[in-house]
Design a protein around this nucleic acid. Structure first.
Lengths: 290, 290
DNA sequence: CATTATGATAATTTAATATTATGATAAATC
DNA sequence: GATTTATCATAATATTAAATTATCATAATG
Protein backbone atom coordinates (compact mmCIF):
# COMPACT_ATOMS: atom_id res chain seq x y z
CA UNK A 1 0.00 0.00 0.00
CA UNK A 2 1.27 3.40 -0.93
CA UNK A 3 1.65 5.79 1.97
CA UNK A 4 -0.56 8.77 1.12
CA UNK A 5 1.67 11.17 3.00
CA UNK A 6 4.65 10.14 0.91
CA UNK A 7 2.52 10.36 -2.18
CA UNK A 8 1.43 13.88 -1.36
CA UNK A 9 5.06 14.87 -0.93
CA UNK A 10 5.92 13.28 -4.26
CA UNK A 11 3.05 15.01 -6.03
CA UNK A 12 4.08 18.36 -4.65
CA UNK A 13 7.68 17.72 -5.63
CA UNK A 14 6.62 17.04 -9.21
CA UNK A 15 4.62 20.26 -9.16
CA UNK A 16 7.35 22.48 -7.74
CA UNK A 17 10.36 20.63 -9.17
CA UNK A 18 12.14 21.65 -6.00
CA UNK A 19 12.81 19.79 -2.74
CA UNK A 20 13.12 22.82 -0.51
CA UNK A 21 10.06 24.56 -1.91
CA UNK A 22 8.03 21.38 -1.44
CA UNK A 23 9.18 21.17 2.16
CA UNK A 24 8.09 24.76 2.71
CA UNK A 25 4.70 24.28 1.07
CA UNK A 26 3.99 21.17 3.11
CA UNK A 27 5.51 22.68 6.27
CA UNK A 28 8.08 19.98 6.69
CA UNK A 29 11.86 19.90 6.50
CA UNK A 30 13.83 19.32 3.35
CA UNK A 31 15.39 16.02 4.50
CA UNK A 32 11.84 14.82 5.07
CA UNK A 33 11.10 15.30 1.39
CA UNK A 34 14.20 13.36 0.39
CA UNK A 35 13.24 10.60 2.80
CA UNK A 36 9.69 10.33 1.47
CA UNK A 37 10.86 9.97 -2.10
CA UNK A 38 13.47 7.45 -1.06
CA UNK A 39 10.92 5.36 0.79
CA UNK A 40 8.60 5.37 -2.19
CA UNK A 41 11.49 4.32 -4.41
CA UNK A 42 12.42 1.50 -2.04
CA UNK A 43 8.83 0.31 -1.83
CA UNK A 44 8.24 0.39 -5.57
CA UNK A 45 11.66 -1.00 -6.35
CA UNK A 46 12.49 1.63 -8.95
CA UNK A 47 13.87 5.10 -9.13
CA UNK A 48 11.19 7.72 -9.51
CA UNK A 49 13.56 10.57 -10.27
CA UNK A 50 16.38 10.73 -12.69
CA UNK A 51 18.78 12.93 -10.75
CA UNK A 52 21.51 14.93 -12.41
CA UNK A 53 23.36 17.42 -10.35
CA UNK A 54 20.73 19.03 -8.17
CA UNK A 55 18.00 18.85 -10.74
CA UNK A 56 15.87 15.89 -11.73
CA UNK A 57 13.45 14.52 -14.29
CA UNK A 58 10.73 11.96 -13.69
CA UNK A 59 11.47 8.43 -14.76
CA UNK A 60 8.79 6.37 -16.48
CA UNK A 61 7.86 4.88 -13.12
CA UNK A 62 7.71 8.37 -11.65
CA UNK A 63 5.39 9.42 -14.41
CA UNK A 64 3.12 6.44 -13.68
CA UNK A 65 3.09 7.23 -9.99
CA UNK A 66 2.20 10.83 -10.76
CA UNK A 67 -0.74 9.73 -12.89
CA UNK A 68 -1.79 7.37 -10.12
CA UNK A 69 -1.62 10.22 -7.63
CA UNK A 70 -3.87 12.41 -9.76
CA UNK A 71 -6.43 9.63 -9.98
CA UNK A 72 -6.13 9.10 -6.25
CA UNK A 73 -6.80 12.68 -5.31
CA UNK A 74 -9.85 12.75 -7.50
CA UNK A 75 -11.23 9.50 -6.09
CA UNK A 76 -10.83 10.80 -2.59
CA UNK A 77 -12.55 14.10 -3.15
CA UNK A 78 -15.34 12.17 -4.89
CA UNK A 79 -15.67 9.97 -1.82
CA UNK A 80 -15.88 12.91 0.54
CA UNK A 81 -18.51 14.54 -1.65
CA UNK A 82 -20.54 11.36 -1.76
CA UNK A 83 -20.44 10.95 1.99
CA UNK A 84 -21.21 14.58 2.68
CA UNK A 85 -24.32 14.62 0.57
CA UNK A 86 -27.31 12.40 1.16
CA UNK A 87 -29.52 14.12 -1.37
CA UNK A 88 -33.00 12.76 -2.01
CA UNK A 89 -32.46 13.27 -5.71
CA UNK A 90 -29.04 11.75 -6.15
CA UNK A 91 -27.82 8.20 -6.17
CA UNK A 92 -28.71 4.69 -7.12
CA UNK A 93 -31.65 2.65 -5.87
CA UNK A 94 -31.98 -1.10 -6.17
CA UNK A 95 -35.25 -3.00 -6.18
CA UNK A 96 -35.89 -6.71 -6.55
CA UNK A 97 -39.34 -8.03 -7.34
CA UNK A 98 -41.20 -10.53 -9.46
CA UNK A 99 -41.17 -10.21 -13.22
CA UNK A 100 -44.78 -9.06 -13.41
CA UNK A 101 -44.23 -6.52 -10.68
CA UNK A 102 -41.20 -5.31 -12.59
CA UNK A 103 -43.28 -4.78 -15.73
CA UNK A 104 -45.86 -2.90 -13.75
CA UNK A 105 -43.43 -0.75 -11.77
CA UNK A 106 -40.59 -0.09 -14.15
CA UNK A 107 -42.35 2.58 -16.27
CA UNK A 108 -43.25 4.48 -13.10
CA UNK A 109 -39.74 4.25 -11.77
CA UNK A 110 -38.44 5.53 -15.08
CA UNK A 111 -40.76 8.51 -14.76
CA UNK A 112 -39.23 9.19 -11.36
CA UNK A 113 -35.77 9.06 -12.91
CA UNK A 114 -36.86 11.47 -15.60
CA UNK A 115 -38.06 13.99 -13.04
CA UNK A 116 -34.91 13.70 -10.94
CA UNK A 117 -31.94 13.36 -13.22
CA UNK A 118 -29.49 12.46 -10.45
CA UNK A 119 -31.45 9.38 -9.55
CA UNK A 120 -30.97 5.94 -11.09
CA UNK A 121 -33.06 2.89 -10.37
CA UNK A 122 -32.26 -0.70 -11.18
CA UNK A 123 -34.89 -3.40 -10.99
CA UNK A 124 -33.98 -7.03 -10.65
CA UNK A 125 -36.72 -9.47 -11.60
CA UNK A 126 -36.48 -12.66 -9.54
CA UNK A 127 -38.64 -15.24 -7.76
CA UNK A 128 -39.48 -14.70 -4.10
CA UNK A 129 -36.70 -16.85 -2.67
CA UNK A 130 -34.04 -15.11 -4.72
CA UNK A 131 -35.39 -11.71 -3.75
CA UNK A 132 -34.91 -12.53 -0.09
CA UNK A 133 -31.36 -13.66 -0.73
CA UNK A 134 -30.59 -10.49 -2.66
CA UNK A 135 -31.81 -8.37 0.23
CA UNK A 136 -29.82 -10.32 2.77
CA UNK A 137 -26.64 -10.04 0.70
CA UNK A 138 -27.16 -6.28 0.30
CA UNK A 139 -27.32 -6.72 -3.44
CA UNK A 140 -30.70 -5.07 -3.41
CA UNK A 141 -32.09 -2.63 -0.89
CA UNK A 142 -35.80 -2.96 -1.56
CA UNK A 143 -37.60 -6.21 -2.22
CA UNK A 144 -41.23 -6.88 -3.08
CA UNK A 145 -42.46 -10.34 -2.24
CA UNK A 146 -45.85 -12.03 -2.13
CA UNK A 147 -45.02 -14.37 0.70
CA UNK A 148 -44.84 -13.56 4.34
CA UNK A 149 -41.23 -14.02 5.41
CA UNK A 150 -40.29 -14.88 8.92
CA UNK A 151 -36.71 -13.76 9.08
CA UNK A 152 -35.67 -11.64 12.07
CA UNK A 153 -33.04 -9.84 10.01
CA UNK A 154 -35.70 -8.44 7.65
CA UNK A 155 -38.41 -5.83 8.01
CA UNK A 156 -41.69 -6.48 6.28
CA UNK A 157 -44.18 -3.79 5.38
CA UNK A 158 -47.54 -4.76 3.85
CA UNK A 159 -48.13 -2.82 0.63
CA UNK A 160 -51.46 -4.21 -0.46
CA UNK A 161 -53.10 -7.19 -2.07
CA UNK A 162 -53.13 -8.71 -5.52
CA UNK A 163 -55.80 -11.17 -6.64
CA UNK A 164 -54.64 -14.49 -8.02
CA UNK A 165 -56.15 -15.31 -11.39
CA UNK A 166 -56.70 -18.67 -13.02
CA UNK A 167 -55.84 -18.05 -16.64
CA UNK A 168 -56.97 -20.44 -19.37
CA UNK A 169 -57.22 -20.48 -23.15
CA UNK A 170 -60.11 -18.31 -24.39
CA UNK A 171 -62.66 -21.07 -24.99
CA UNK A 172 -61.95 -23.30 -21.95
CA UNK A 173 -64.31 -23.77 -19.01
CA UNK A 174 -62.91 -23.66 -15.49
CA UNK A 175 -63.76 -27.21 -14.39
CA UNK A 176 -61.40 -29.62 -12.70
CA UNK A 177 -61.52 -32.03 -15.62
CA UNK A 178 -60.56 -29.34 -18.10
CA UNK A 179 -57.68 -28.25 -15.91
CA UNK A 180 -56.37 -31.81 -15.69
CA UNK A 181 -56.63 -32.15 -19.43
CA UNK A 182 -54.99 -28.80 -20.20
CA UNK A 183 -52.03 -29.16 -17.86
CA UNK A 184 -50.14 -26.50 -15.94
CA UNK A 185 -47.78 -23.89 -17.38
CA UNK A 186 -45.33 -23.37 -14.58
CA UNK A 187 -43.21 -20.34 -13.61
CA UNK A 188 -40.92 -19.60 -10.65
CA UNK A 189 -43.79 -18.89 -8.25
CA UNK A 190 -46.26 -21.09 -10.11
CA UNK A 191 -46.72 -23.87 -7.56
CA UNK A 192 -47.05 -21.41 -4.71
CA UNK A 193 -49.79 -19.44 -6.46
CA UNK A 194 -51.67 -22.40 -7.93
CA UNK A 195 -51.75 -24.33 -4.67
CA UNK A 196 -53.47 -21.45 -2.86
CA UNK A 197 -56.11 -20.86 -5.51
CA UNK A 198 -56.88 -24.50 -6.34
CA UNK A 199 -57.10 -25.58 -2.69
CA UNK A 200 -59.86 -23.07 -2.08
CA UNK A 201 -61.84 -23.67 -5.26
CA UNK A 202 -61.36 -27.39 -5.88
CA UNK A 203 -61.04 -28.55 -2.28
CA UNK A 204 -62.59 -31.95 -3.13
CA UNK A 205 -60.37 -32.80 -6.08
CA UNK A 206 -57.10 -30.95 -5.49
CA UNK A 207 -54.50 -32.97 -3.60
CA UNK A 208 -51.31 -31.28 -4.70
CA UNK A 209 -49.54 -29.93 -7.77
CA UNK A 210 -48.12 -33.35 -8.59
CA UNK A 211 -51.56 -34.37 -9.82
CA UNK A 212 -51.40 -31.92 -12.69
CA UNK A 213 -49.21 -32.52 -15.72
CA UNK A 214 -46.77 -29.69 -16.29
CA UNK A 215 -47.03 -28.71 -19.93
CA UNK A 216 -44.61 -25.82 -19.89
CA UNK A 217 -42.26 -23.67 -17.88
CA UNK A 218 -41.03 -20.17 -18.45
CA UNK A 219 -39.35 -17.82 -16.05
CA UNK A 220 -40.45 -14.64 -17.75
CA UNK A 221 -43.93 -13.65 -16.66
CA UNK A 222 -44.25 -11.33 -19.63
CA UNK A 223 -44.28 -14.37 -21.87
CA UNK A 224 -46.10 -16.88 -19.73
CA UNK A 225 -49.52 -16.14 -21.20
CA UNK A 226 -48.34 -16.96 -24.68
CA UNK A 227 -48.53 -20.77 -24.28
CA UNK A 228 -51.87 -20.33 -22.46
CA UNK A 229 -53.31 -18.31 -25.34
CA UNK A 230 -52.18 -21.07 -27.70
CA UNK A 231 -54.21 -23.63 -25.77
CA UNK A 232 -51.18 -25.40 -24.30
CA UNK A 233 -52.24 -25.19 -20.65
CA UNK A 234 -53.46 -23.01 -17.82
CA UNK A 235 -51.60 -21.07 -15.19
CA UNK A 236 -52.10 -18.99 -12.06
CA UNK A 237 -50.63 -15.50 -11.89
CA UNK A 238 -51.37 -12.28 -10.01
CA UNK A 239 -53.84 -9.85 -11.57
CA UNK A 240 -51.13 -7.26 -12.13
CA UNK A 241 -49.34 -9.65 -14.49
CA UNK A 242 -52.53 -10.36 -16.35
CA UNK A 243 -53.21 -6.70 -16.99
CA UNK A 244 -50.08 -6.21 -19.04
CA UNK A 245 -50.78 -9.02 -21.53
CA UNK A 246 -51.26 -7.42 -24.97
CA UNK A 247 -53.95 -9.83 -26.31
CA UNK A 248 -56.60 -10.14 -23.54
CA UNK A 249 -59.21 -11.74 -25.86
CA UNK A 250 -57.03 -14.77 -26.55
CA UNK A 251 -57.16 -15.85 -22.92
CA UNK A 252 -59.79 -16.31 -20.28
CA UNK A 253 -59.57 -15.01 -16.74
CA UNK A 254 -61.80 -17.67 -15.15
CA UNK A 255 -64.32 -16.50 -12.59
CA UNK A 256 -64.04 -18.72 -9.52
CA UNK A 257 -66.23 -19.08 -6.44
CA UNK A 258 -63.56 -18.13 -3.93
CA UNK A 259 -61.13 -15.32 -4.52
CA UNK A 260 -57.60 -15.64 -3.20
CA UNK A 261 -55.68 -12.49 -2.57
CA UNK A 262 -51.93 -12.59 -2.43
CA UNK A 263 -50.54 -10.09 0.04
CA UNK A 264 -47.73 -7.96 -1.27
CA UNK A 265 -44.91 -6.97 1.08
CA UNK A 266 -42.06 -4.54 0.87
CA UNK A 267 -39.04 -6.08 2.57
CA UNK A 268 -35.90 -4.33 3.68
CA UNK A 269 -32.99 -5.31 5.83
CA UNK A 270 -33.25 -4.50 9.49
CA UNK A 271 -30.44 -2.38 10.94
CA UNK A 272 -29.59 -1.07 7.52
CA UNK A 273 -30.20 2.64 7.28
CA UNK A 274 -31.09 3.42 3.70
CA UNK A 275 -30.26 6.74 2.02
CA UNK A 276 -33.09 9.23 2.03
CA UNK A 277 -33.72 8.78 -1.69
CA UNK A 278 -35.41 5.47 -0.92
CA UNK A 279 -38.24 7.38 0.73
CA UNK A 280 -39.34 8.42 -2.75
CA UNK A 281 -39.46 4.84 -3.96
CA UNK A 282 -41.30 3.77 -0.83
CA UNK A 283 -43.95 6.43 -1.42
CA UNK A 284 -44.31 5.39 -5.05
CA UNK A 285 -44.80 1.77 -3.99
CA UNK A 286 -47.35 2.67 -1.35
CA UNK A 287 -49.37 4.80 -3.76
CA UNK A 288 -49.28 1.93 -6.25
CA UNK A 289 -51.52 -0.11 -3.93
CA UNK A 290 -52.68 2.88 -1.86
CA UNK B 1 -6.03 11.49 3.32
CA UNK B 2 -7.36 8.06 4.08
CA UNK B 3 -4.92 5.83 5.91
CA UNK B 4 -4.47 2.79 3.69
CA UNK B 5 -3.81 0.51 6.65
CA UNK B 6 -7.13 1.47 8.20
CA UNK B 7 -8.80 1.08 4.83
CA UNK B 8 -7.44 -2.42 4.42
CA UNK B 9 -8.79 -3.34 7.84
CA UNK B 10 -12.17 -1.90 6.92
CA UNK B 11 -12.27 -3.75 3.61
CA UNK B 12 -11.45 -7.01 5.31
CA UNK B 13 -14.07 -6.37 7.95
CA UNK B 14 -16.70 -5.88 5.28
CA UNK B 15 -15.57 -9.10 3.64
CA UNK B 16 -15.60 -11.23 6.79
CA UNK B 17 -18.36 -9.41 8.65
CA UNK B 18 -16.40 -10.25 11.77
CA UNK B 19 -13.99 -8.24 13.88
CA UNK B 20 -12.08 -11.16 15.34
CA UNK B 21 -11.73 -13.00 12.05
CA UNK B 22 -10.45 -9.83 10.43
CA UNK B 23 -7.89 -9.43 13.20
CA UNK B 24 -6.73 -13.02 12.62
CA UNK B 25 -6.53 -12.64 8.85
CA UNK B 26 -4.53 -9.44 9.13
CA UNK B 27 -2.45 -10.78 12.02
CA UNK B 28 -3.40 -8.04 14.40
CA UNK B 29 -5.45 -7.93 17.58
CA UNK B 30 -9.20 -7.46 17.68
CA UNK B 31 -9.09 -4.13 19.52
CA UNK B 32 -6.86 -2.92 16.72
CA UNK B 33 -9.66 -3.57 14.26
CA UNK B 34 -12.14 -1.63 16.40
CA UNK B 35 -9.66 1.20 16.66
CA UNK B 36 -9.08 1.39 12.91
CA UNK B 37 -12.78 1.58 12.17
CA UNK B 38 -13.25 4.19 14.86
CA UNK B 39 -10.45 6.32 13.46
CA UNK B 40 -11.93 6.16 9.98
CA UNK B 41 -15.30 7.14 11.39
CA UNK B 42 -13.81 10.08 13.24
CA UNK B 43 -11.90 11.23 10.18
CA UNK B 44 -14.88 10.96 7.83
CA UNK B 45 -17.28 12.35 10.42
CA UNK B 46 -19.88 9.61 9.96
CA UNK B 47 -20.56 6.15 11.21
CA UNK B 48 -19.51 3.47 8.79
CA UNK B 49 -21.22 0.63 10.60
CA UNK B 50 -24.70 0.39 11.93
CA UNK B 51 -24.08 -1.71 15.02
CA UNK B 52 -26.76 -3.76 16.68
CA UNK B 53 -25.81 -6.23 19.36
CA UNK B 54 -22.56 -7.72 18.17
CA UNK B 55 -23.46 -7.64 14.51
CA UNK B 56 -23.42 -4.74 12.10
CA UNK B 57 -24.55 -3.51 8.72
CA UNK B 58 -22.79 -0.96 6.52
CA UNK B 59 -24.21 2.53 6.52
CA UNK B 60 -24.49 4.48 3.28
CA UNK B 61 -21.15 6.10 4.03
CA UNK B 62 -19.69 2.69 4.75
CA UNK B 63 -20.94 1.48 1.40
CA UNK B 64 -19.30 4.46 -0.33
CA UNK B 65 -16.02 3.84 1.45
CA UNK B 66 -16.15 0.19 0.44
CA UNK B 67 -16.64 1.13 -3.20
CA UNK B 68 -13.77 3.60 -2.88
CA UNK B 69 -11.59 0.86 -1.44
CA UNK B 70 -12.31 -1.48 -4.32
CA UNK B 71 -11.37 1.25 -6.80
CA UNK B 72 -8.25 1.97 -4.79
CA UNK B 73 -6.98 -1.60 -4.75
CA UNK B 74 -7.48 -1.84 -8.46
CA UNK B 75 -5.68 1.44 -9.15
CA UNK B 76 -2.76 0.29 -7.05
CA UNK B 77 -2.36 -3.08 -8.68
CA UNK B 78 -2.59 -1.32 -12.05
CA UNK B 79 0.20 0.99 -10.97
CA UNK B 80 2.43 -1.86 -9.88
CA UNK B 81 1.82 -3.67 -13.16
CA UNK B 82 2.62 -0.55 -15.14
CA UNK B 83 5.84 0.01 -13.24
CA UNK B 84 6.89 -3.62 -13.39
CA UNK B 85 6.59 -3.91 -17.14
CA UNK B 86 8.54 -1.80 -19.56
CA UNK B 87 7.44 -3.75 -22.59
CA UNK B 88 8.61 -2.56 -25.99
CA UNK B 89 5.14 -3.23 -27.35
CA UNK B 90 3.01 -1.60 -24.66
CA UNK B 91 2.33 2.00 -23.84
CA UNK B 92 1.87 5.42 -25.29
CA UNK B 93 4.36 7.41 -27.33
CA UNK B 94 4.19 11.11 -27.98
CA UNK B 95 5.75 12.87 -30.92
CA UNK B 96 5.65 16.53 -31.86
CA UNK B 97 6.66 17.67 -35.34
CA UNK B 98 5.70 20.01 -38.13
CA UNK B 99 2.44 19.50 -39.97
CA UNK B 100 4.10 18.22 -43.12
CA UNK B 101 6.24 15.84 -41.12
CA UNK B 102 3.11 14.64 -39.41
CA UNK B 103 1.45 13.88 -42.74
CA UNK B 104 4.50 12.02 -43.86
CA UNK B 105 5.05 10.05 -40.65
CA UNK B 106 1.57 9.39 -39.33
CA UNK B 107 0.67 6.55 -41.75
CA UNK B 108 3.91 4.77 -40.86
CA UNK B 109 3.29 5.20 -37.16
CA UNK B 110 -0.19 3.82 -37.61
CA UNK B 111 1.31 0.75 -39.28
CA UNK B 112 3.51 0.30 -36.24
CA UNK B 113 0.45 0.50 -34.02
CA UNK B 114 -1.30 -2.09 -36.16
CA UNK B 115 1.59 -4.52 -35.78
CA UNK B 116 1.84 -4.03 -32.02
CA UNK B 117 -1.63 -3.64 -30.60
CA UNK B 118 -0.47 -2.51 -27.15
CA UNK B 119 1.21 0.53 -28.60
CA UNK B 120 -0.43 3.90 -29.15
CA UNK B 121 1.17 6.90 -30.78
CA UNK B 122 -0.02 10.46 -30.69
CA UNK B 123 1.38 13.07 -33.02
CA UNK B 124 1.14 16.74 -32.28
CA UNK B 125 1.63 19.02 -35.25
CA UNK B 126 3.22 22.30 -34.21
CA UNK B 127 5.76 24.89 -35.33
CA UNK B 128 9.38 24.51 -34.23
CA UNK B 129 9.18 26.80 -31.23
CA UNK B 130 6.12 25.07 -29.83
CA UNK B 131 7.73 21.67 -30.32
CA UNK B 132 10.64 22.69 -28.15
CA UNK B 133 8.30 23.92 -25.45
CA UNK B 134 6.32 20.69 -25.55
CA UNK B 135 9.47 18.66 -25.06
CA UNK B 136 10.65 20.81 -22.17
CA UNK B 137 7.28 20.54 -20.45
CA UNK B 138 7.30 16.75 -20.88
CA UNK B 139 4.12 17.00 -22.90
CA UNK B 140 5.85 15.24 -25.72
CA UNK B 141 8.79 12.88 -25.53
CA UNK B 142 10.03 13.04 -29.11
CA UNK B 143 10.27 16.17 -31.17
CA UNK B 144 11.31 16.68 -34.75
CA UNK B 145 12.58 20.13 -35.64
CA UNK B 146 14.31 21.67 -38.60
CA UNK B 147 16.27 24.18 -36.62
CA UNK B 148 19.38 23.58 -34.63
CA UNK B 149 18.52 24.23 -31.01
CA UNK B 150 21.09 25.28 -28.49
CA UNK B 151 19.46 24.31 -25.25
CA UNK B 152 21.61 22.35 -22.76
CA UNK B 153 18.55 20.53 -21.40
CA UNK B 154 17.85 18.95 -24.78
CA UNK B 155 19.55 16.25 -26.80
CA UNK B 156 19.70 16.70 -30.52
CA UNK B 157 20.20 13.88 -32.98
CA UNK B 158 20.52 14.66 -36.70
CA UNK B 159 18.07 12.56 -38.71
CA UNK B 160 18.73 13.79 -42.21
CA UNK B 161 18.08 16.60 -44.60
CA UNK B 162 15.08 17.94 -46.40
CA UNK B 163 15.38 20.26 -49.40
CA UNK B 164 13.46 23.53 -49.28
CA UNK B 165 11.28 24.10 -52.33
CA UNK B 166 10.01 27.31 -53.83
CA UNK B 167 6.49 26.48 -54.88
CA UNK B 168 4.60 28.66 -57.34
CA UNK B 169 1.47 28.46 -59.48
CA UNK B 170 1.93 26.10 -62.43
CA UNK B 171 2.62 28.75 -65.11
CA UNK B 172 4.78 31.18 -63.13
CA UNK B 173 8.49 31.75 -63.70
CA UNK B 174 10.83 31.93 -60.72
CA UNK B 175 12.06 35.50 -61.12
CA UNK B 176 12.24 38.13 -58.38
CA UNK B 177 9.68 40.30 -60.13
CA UNK B 178 7.15 37.48 -60.37
CA UNK B 179 7.64 36.66 -56.69
CA UNK B 180 7.02 40.27 -55.70
CA UNK B 181 3.92 40.35 -57.82
CA UNK B 182 2.55 37.01 -56.55
CA UNK B 183 3.08 37.63 -52.88
CA UNK B 184 3.88 35.15 -50.12
CA UNK B 185 1.56 32.55 -48.66
CA UNK B 186 2.76 32.27 -45.10
CA UNK B 187 2.67 29.37 -42.59
CA UNK B 188 4.13 28.90 -39.10
CA UNK B 189 7.66 28.26 -40.34
CA UNK B 190 7.20 30.26 -43.51
CA UNK B 191 9.52 33.16 -42.84
CA UNK B 192 12.24 30.89 -41.52
CA UNK B 193 12.19 28.73 -44.64
CA UNK B 194 11.74 31.52 -47.16
CA UNK B 195 14.51 33.66 -45.74
CA UNK B 196 17.05 30.86 -46.13
CA UNK B 197 16.10 30.01 -49.68
CA UNK B 198 15.64 33.56 -50.98
CA UNK B 199 18.85 34.87 -49.41
CA UNK B 200 20.86 32.31 -51.33
CA UNK B 201 19.09 32.64 -54.67
CA UNK B 202 18.17 36.33 -54.79
CA UNK B 203 21.06 37.73 -52.77
CA UNK B 204 20.97 40.98 -54.73
CA UNK B 205 17.29 41.74 -54.39
CA UNK B 206 16.23 40.05 -51.16
CA UNK B 207 16.47 42.27 -48.10
CA UNK B 208 13.96 40.61 -45.80
CA UNK B 209 10.50 39.13 -45.70
CA UNK B 210 8.95 42.54 -45.11
CA UNK B 211 9.56 43.37 -48.77
CA UNK B 212 7.10 40.73 -49.92
CA UNK B 213 3.37 41.21 -49.61
CA UNK B 214 1.76 38.44 -47.59
CA UNK B 215 -1.23 37.22 -49.57
CA UNK B 216 -2.28 34.38 -47.28
CA UNK B 217 -1.64 32.46 -44.11
CA UNK B 218 -2.62 28.99 -43.12
CA UNK B 219 -1.27 26.85 -40.30
CA UNK B 220 -2.08 23.53 -41.94
CA UNK B 221 0.62 22.52 -44.33
CA UNK B 222 -1.71 20.01 -45.94
CA UNK B 223 -3.72 22.90 -47.30
CA UNK B 224 -1.05 25.48 -47.95
CA UNK B 225 -0.55 24.52 -51.57
CA UNK B 226 -4.19 25.14 -52.35
CA UNK B 227 -3.91 28.96 -52.55
CA UNK B 228 -0.64 28.53 -54.48
CA UNK B 229 -2.32 26.27 -57.04
CA UNK B 230 -5.02 28.91 -57.43
CA UNK B 231 -2.45 31.51 -58.34
CA UNK B 232 -2.76 33.50 -55.14
CA UNK B 233 0.91 33.49 -54.21
CA UNK B 234 4.09 31.44 -53.72
CA UNK B 235 5.49 29.74 -50.66
CA UNK B 236 8.51 27.84 -49.41
CA UNK B 237 8.08 24.42 -47.86
CA UNK B 238 10.21 21.30 -47.37
CA UNK B 239 10.19 18.71 -50.12
CA UNK B 240 8.43 16.19 -47.89
CA UNK B 241 5.42 18.46 -47.68
CA UNK B 242 5.38 18.97 -51.41
CA UNK B 243 5.32 15.23 -52.06
CA UNK B 244 1.98 14.72 -50.36
CA UNK B 245 0.10 17.35 -52.39
CA UNK B 246 -2.57 15.52 -54.43
CA UNK B 247 -2.47 17.74 -57.57
CA UNK B 248 1.22 18.15 -58.46
CA UNK B 249 0.49 19.48 -61.97
CA UNK B 250 -1.33 22.54 -60.65
CA UNK B 251 1.82 23.85 -58.99
CA UNK B 252 5.41 24.40 -59.98
CA UNK B 253 8.41 23.33 -57.94
CA UNK B 254 10.78 26.01 -59.22
CA UNK B 255 14.32 24.93 -60.02
CA UNK B 256 16.75 27.36 -58.41
CA UNK B 257 20.47 27.86 -58.78
CA UNK B 258 21.34 27.15 -55.15
CA UNK B 259 19.74 24.36 -53.18
CA UNK B 260 19.08 24.86 -49.50
CA UNK B 261 18.81 21.81 -47.34
CA UNK B 262 17.04 22.02 -44.06
CA UNK B 263 18.56 19.72 -41.50
CA UNK B 264 16.10 17.61 -39.58
CA UNK B 265 16.76 16.83 -35.92
CA UNK B 266 15.21 14.50 -33.41
CA UNK B 267 15.15 16.23 -30.06
CA UNK B 268 14.58 14.65 -26.68
CA UNK B 269 15.00 15.84 -23.15
CA UNK B 270 18.31 15.20 -21.52
CA UNK B 271 18.27 13.22 -18.30
CA UNK B 272 14.88 11.80 -19.15
CA UNK B 273 15.05 8.07 -19.58
CA UNK B 274 12.40 7.10 -22.08
CA UNK B 275 10.61 3.75 -22.00
CA UNK B 276 12.08 1.13 -24.31
CA UNK B 277 9.13 1.39 -26.71
CA UNK B 278 10.59 4.67 -27.97
CA UNK B 279 13.46 2.72 -29.48
CA UNK B 280 11.01 1.49 -32.11
CA UNK B 281 9.96 4.99 -33.01
CA UNK B 282 13.56 6.13 -33.12
CA UNK B 283 14.44 3.36 -35.56
CA UNK B 284 11.45 4.21 -37.72
CA UNK B 285 12.51 7.85 -37.83
CA UNK B 286 16.10 6.98 -38.69
CA UNK B 287 15.06 4.67 -41.49
CA UNK B 288 12.80 7.40 -42.83
CA UNK B 289 15.86 9.44 -43.75
CA UNK B 290 18.17 6.38 -43.67
C1' DC C 1 38.42 30.20 -6.52
C1' DA C 2 35.29 31.31 -3.02
C1' DT C 3 30.47 31.55 -1.90
C1' DT C 4 25.86 30.19 -1.86
C1' DA C 5 22.23 26.97 -2.68
C1' DT C 6 20.65 22.50 -2.62
C1' DG C 7 20.11 17.73 -1.67
C1' DA C 8 21.79 13.53 1.14
C1' DT C 9 22.92 11.23 5.54
C1' DA C 10 23.11 10.14 10.65
C1' DA C 11 21.51 10.71 15.27
C1' DT C 12 17.89 12.09 18.13
C1' DT C 13 13.27 13.42 19.38
C1' DT C 14 8.43 13.13 18.75
C1' DA C 15 4.17 11.17 17.33
C1' DA C 16 1.42 7.54 15.73
C1' DT C 17 0.11 2.82 15.98
C1' DA C 18 -0.07 -1.88 17.98
C1' DT C 19 -0.48 -4.84 21.80
C1' DT C 20 -1.76 -6.52 26.31
C1' DA C 21 -4.92 -6.67 29.79
C1' DT C 22 -9.37 -5.86 31.21
C1' DG C 23 -14.28 -4.68 31.09
C1' DA C 24 -19.06 -4.78 29.21
C1' DT C 25 -22.74 -6.80 26.73
C1' DA C 26 -25.12 -9.78 23.71
C1' DA C 27 -25.93 -14.58 22.08
C1' DA C 28 -25.83 -19.47 23.13
C1' DT C 29 -26.32 -23.41 26.19
C1' DC C 30 -28.09 -26.03 29.73
C1' DG D 1 -33.49 -17.93 33.68
C1' DA D 2 -28.81 -18.43 35.24
C1' DT D 3 -24.28 -19.59 33.31
C1' DT D 4 -21.06 -19.79 29.84
C1' DT D 5 -19.03 -18.25 25.67
C1' DA D 6 -18.18 -15.05 22.09
C1' DT D 7 -17.49 -10.58 20.72
C1' DC D 8 -16.54 -5.69 20.74
C1' DA D 9 -14.95 -1.48 23.50
C1' DT D 10 -11.66 0.89 26.48
C1' DA D 11 -7.32 2.10 29.03
C1' DA D 12 -2.49 1.61 29.79
C1' DT D 13 1.78 0.25 27.98
C1' DA D 14 5.11 -1.02 24.39
C1' DT D 15 6.60 -0.67 19.80
C1' DT D 16 7.37 1.26 15.52
C1' DA D 17 7.45 4.89 12.19
C1' DA D 18 8.27 9.51 10.97
C1' DA D 19 9.98 14.29 11.76
C1' DT D 20 13.54 17.22 13.11
C1' DT D 21 18.21 18.89 14.02
C1' DA D 22 22.76 18.99 12.85
C1' DT D 23 26.15 17.99 9.54
C1' DC D 24 28.23 16.78 5.16
C1' DA D 25 28.94 16.72 0.09
C1' DT D 26 28.42 18.66 -4.24
C1' DA D 27 26.80 21.53 -7.83
C1' DA D 28 25.63 26.20 -9.52
C1' DT D 29 26.97 31.15 -9.30
C1' DG D 30 29.74 35.27 -9.65
Amino acid sequence: MINPVFLRTFMNLVKTNHFTHTAEELSMTQPGVSQHIKKLEIQLGTTLLNRYGKKFELTTAGESLFQYGLKQFKAESDLLNTIASDDVNIGHCTLACSGSMAMQLYPKLLNLQKERSGLTVSVEAAPNTTIIELIKKNQSDFGIVTQQVNDPSLIQEPLGEDALCLVMPAQSEPTWEVLLELGFINHPDGHHYATQLLEKNFSGEFKGMDQLPQTGYINQLSQILLPVSMGLGFTVIPKSSLDVFPYPDRIRNAVLASLVNERVFLITKKHRALPSRYQLIRELLRSEWH
